[in-house]
């Protein structure tokens, strides 16, 4: 049994070594991610966006935010890092002039949590 386990274990290690090593920022803490989802629901982000894990509403005017953590760019222009995403979530027009997304009143904590939640969407 020990022998078999050792073989399986070493094979797993070999397989793991075959995975590409994605350079991903670490996830924010679970509390922040959960608060971010609740804040996105409370603020009604779904009026324009399809949101991962939220059944209704599924707005179509803005892009779906499913798998947002895999995206390289915010709104096709800005690097998708946490501080920039948080700033964009709260005040899109000041970062991307001409965006149809309005500035939405929220505090810095909410913006940070929503950004953390969006970046945790990596499916």
């Amino acid at each position: 049994m020990i022998w078999k386990g050792g073989v399986a274990g070493s094979m797993l290690m070999i397989l793991a070594a075959c995975d590409p090593a994605p350079i991903e920022p670490p996830l924010a803490d679970a509390g922040s991610i959960a608060r971010g989802k609740a804040a996105a629901q409370r603020l009604g982000c779904g009026a324009c966006h399809e949101l991962p894990g939220i059944d209704w509403p599924k707005g179509r005017i803005g892009p779906s935010l499913a798998g947002f953590g895999n995206r390289a760019l915010i709104a096709g222009t800005l690097p998708n890092d946490l501080p920039r995403l948080a700033a964009f979530v709260a005040d899109a027009p000041s970062l991307v002039p001409g965006s149809g997304m309005p500035a939405v009143p929220m505090d810095a904590g909410e913006a940070h949590d929503i950004a953390a939640w969006l970046q945790s969407q990596r499916d």
Binding site: L43, G44, A47, C48, I61, G100, P102, A103, V104
Partner: peptide, 12 residues
Amino acid sequence: ILPNNPGTMAGW
């Protein structure tokens, strides 16, 4: 059905 803020207003 929706909260009222600039985002939901635009979306609506």
